[in-house]
Every structure is written in structure tokens, then in C-alpha cells.
């Protein structure tokens, strides 16, 4: 019996989305993730390094050391380091400091930080809010405005605040990351709502909500596979947007990524374990169809870049 490989029957493709002003594109796949052997594999997934607007607390020692204590309280220096030294493809500014339950920084303060980071880098900028729907709506009206012309990604846009944030994105020319809670139909619904508002499909990224390795990764992975099968095999147009995974905060919240070797001697070297927890979360998401991974550790960025190259061939 002679074996001849049968290709999948595709009936759709992922749209291309341009990020920033330097020609970076994501999406464009006409095949399932890493299946370029049977068709157009589109753009390689990209790695965005997360920087915070306020100095992080409680991060594991090895992560702080790898990033550099000197830049942790300085998002501009942090972002430049990600661009110039770590080979990131994009920077994600996380405005965790705007959370009303945390530092409760004002929209104006957030906008100032976002503008400073944007001016300091040439690569695409992603800006994530705190996730508080009311506050994010206020924050992104200001942040959207000061970043006009940067073609940034802003999010997470949720069903409860999409009108305000998507309007800001349309008004100031940005891309949105629409977040829904690990559910194919809710992702479709939000995309329909946003396109009905007039936001073009090539200005939308899908954020499926991300569970880290060991903490719900299985759910995220399967929802992403179902998103991709719907988009590519069934030709469902409202799911044909690239996927963004805001995974850094989840991966580094995991006990396994955080605890020291003294606390858990059987779990091995803490520095290596943290990096691999982030890397393997990322690898599974890549296999599920991620186009943008938001991560923290410079070494993880390096490993993921190499791995993407090796698996894409």
C-alpha cells in the first residue's frame, strides 16, 4: 500500500492584521497552525514582551533579575530593553496601575505613560487595561487619543465596554483585542457586535482568555482549536481574525512558576522552572493557533522565537 498524504479541505483563511507603523503583520494563514506543508502558513506568530506601568510586586527573584531591577519601575526603559536587547516583536504595556483596587492611576497618567512608551519604540505597541470594564472604558478614551497614528492594539475589549473602546479605536485608528471567557460563541458574538458598530474585521484580534499551563490551559487550547477549525474548515467569517493570548500574568501567577527551590525542593531550579512554565504555556497556545503571545521573560522570548522557527520550517 502506497501512502499519499491527504490534505485538509480548507474553506477559509485568517485575515491579516497590521500592527504598528513598521509593517508588522499577523494572521494570513490558509492552513491550521504550523501546517504550512499543505498551504500558505501566513505570518509567523509574534512575541510581545509585557511591561507594567507600575513597579511589579511579588515577582519571582529570577524573573526580576532577568529583566533587570533598574527598569522594573520605568516602563520606557523596560520597553526599550525589550526591543533592543531581547529581540521582542512587540511591546505590551499593561496598565495594571489603573485598577481601582490597586494604584487607581488616572486615565491622564495612563495616557502619559502610553505615549512615552510609544515614542520610545519603533515596534508595535499593545496596551492592555486592568480588566475593570468601567475604568478601561475611561482609560482607553484618553490612551486611544494620545496614541493616534500609532496603530496600537488596545484591550481587553469586553461585551460590557466594547461600544466605548471600539469607538475610540475607530476614531483614533487602533486595533482592538476583544476578550471573551473561553467560549467560541461568545467570541463570535463580540466580533459581530464590534463589526456592526463599524469596526473593520482587519482591526480586530481575538483574545480567547488564557489559562496557564496546569491552570485551565486545556480549556483555552481547545477553544482555540475550535475557533481555528470554524474559521478555516467551516469558513466562519466572524472568527477569521488572528488570536492574541495575554498569557504572561497567568503563567507567572502559577505556583510552579513562582516558588523558590527552597520551598519546593522536588521541583528543581526555580529560574529554569519559571522560564519553562512560560515557554510550555506558549508552545501549547501556538499549537492551538496563537498569533500574538504576550510574555514576560527575555529567555522565554528567545526560546519561543527559536521554537517557532524550527516548527514552521
Amino acid at each position: 500500500m502506497v501512502y499519499s498524504p491527504a490534505a485538509e479541505k480548507y474553506n477559509g483563511e485568517i485575515g491579516e492584521v497590521v500592527l504598528g507603523t513598521d509593517g508588522v503583520k499577523v494572521g494570513g494563514q490558509k492552513v491550521l497552525p504550523f501546517q504550512g506543508f499543505e498551504g500558505e502558513a501566513g505570518n509567523h506568530p509574534i512575541i510581545a514582551i509585557e511591561v507594567l506601568d507600575v513597579e511589579p510586586e511579588g515577582w519571582p527573584e529570577a524573573l526580576v533579575e532577568a529583566i533587570g531591577q533598574d527598569v522594573l519601575g520605568d516602563p520606557v526603559a523596560w520597553a526599550k530593553k525589550a526591543q533592543d536587547e531581547w529581540g521582542a516583536d512587540a511591546v505590551c504595556l499593561s496598565l495594571v496601575g489603573t485598577d481601582p483596587n490597586a494604584a487607581d492611576r488616572s486615565p491622564d497618567e495612563a495616557a502619559e505613560t502610553a505615549k512615552a512608551v510609544s515614542d520610545a519604540i519603533s515596534m508595535p505597541l499593545i496596551v492592555y487595561g486592568s480588566g475593570n470594564v468601567e475604568k478601561d472604558a475611561e482609560v482607553f478614551q484618553r490612551v486611544g487619543e494620545v496614541l493616534q497614528g500609532a496603530n496600537a492594539v488596545i484591550g481587553p475589549v469586553k461585551e460590557d465596554n466594547y461600544k466605548t473602546i471600539a469607538a475610540a479605536a475607530m476614531g483614533f485608528g487602533h486595533v482592538v483585542a476583544g476578550e471573551t471567557p473561553i467560549d467560541v460563541n461568545m467570541a463570535k458574538q463580540l466580533n459581530i457586535l464590534m463589526t456592526n458598530l463599524g469596526l473593520p474585521a482587519d482591526k480586530i484580534l481575538v483574545d480567547p482568555s488564557t489559562g496557564a499551563l496546569g491552570y485551565g490551559l486545556d480549556y483555552t487550547f481547545s477553544v482555540m482549536e475550535r475557533d481555528r477549525l470554524s474559521a478555516l474548515l467551516q469558513g466562519d467569517k466572524v472568527l477569521q481574525m488572528p488570536i492574541i493570548n495575554n498569557m504572561a500574568k497567568e503563567a507567572w501567577k502559577s505556583k510552579e512558576a513562582k516558588v523558590s527551590a527552597e520551598e519546593e525542593p522536588a521541583w528543581g531550579d526555580a529560574a529554569e522552572r519559571g522560564i519553562l512554565w512560560e515557554v510550555l504555556t506558549g508552545v501549547a497556545l501556538l499549537m492551538g493557533g496563537a498569533d500574538v503571545l504576550i510574555i514576560r521573560h527575555p529567555k522565554a522570548a528567545d526560546v519561543l522565537h527559536t521554537t517557532i522557527g524550527l516548527l514552521a520550517g
Binding site: 499551563l213 496546569g214 486545556d218 487550547f221 521541583w267 528543581g268 522552572r273 519553562l276 510550555l280 501549547a284
Partner: peptide, 18 residues
Amino acid sequence: LEAAKALPLVVLRQNVYT
């Protein structure tokens, strides 16, 4: 298979095969 490498791998397997 140092522990720091084995732990994430076996947890990934658990996630995939759940």
C-alpha cells in the same frame, strides 16, 4: 529530565489528556 523540566512537561501532558 531535571525536575524543573519534567514538571512542566508532565503537567502539559495532564492538560492535554484530561
